[in-house]
Amino acid sequence: MSLIIDRGRLMLPGPTDGAAERRVPSERLHLIPEAARRSFVPWVSDLPGLKLGENDLTRIAPGRPQAEGEVIEISGHVLDEFGRPVRNTLVEIWNANTWGRYTHVKDPVRERLDPNFLGFGRTMTDEAGRYRFRTIMPGSYLARPDIDRWRPAHVHVSIRGGSARLIAQMYFAGDPHLARDPMFILLGEAQPRHFGNLVGQGPRGEALYRWDIVIGGRNTAYFES
């Protein structure tokens, strides 16, 4: 880069309803001097003890009925920008139930709860950076009844562990609500990278989605730097 930049990114007023214009910094981010870079890279060695089956959101516990809706599988790799796997990192996902309702206590959506669906799960990537979840195809939901704004079906993902950190959303191509969703629209040219790719059907007829999660910046490259 020949460009000399002395300030970082400007955080654009985000798309979420109401909060963004009060919470997004109005000033550009500041660049970190190289001499101070080291302590900006958290290293999380002590991850919570995962229980078997925490990557299967379709059943709350063994022997419980399967959650309502269409079972889907989402799998892929967590990678850095150079294609190197991000190993042994915690991947958390959360998504609405088939009717578009979260179990979170603050979800004001009036849709039904599913007694057999909690809507969150987690797993660790393996040595190749792979992860895999079974969940229920999330429903879209009316996020803003006052302006008739829907959120398209989406799965939230959080990567935490080692020195990687990312919050992102995966969407489903063809969702009719994508075109009017401010969060999706703001992705701009990056939109295609946030679709889960439908690659086939599993043995029980479940749709298989692949989504590789690429984490930017230097924080992922702790060992290699």
Binding site: T16, P48, T103, F120, H156, I167
Partner: peptide
């Protein structure tokens, strides 16, 4: 030839409290 990173997004209002275990 670097891979394009996924866009950082908001955590939204419904991040599960139960992930804060311990």
């Amino acid at each position: 030839n670097r891979l394009a990173p996924r866009a950082e997004d908001t955590v939204g209002p419904y991040y599960p409290y139960s992930f804060i275990d311990g």
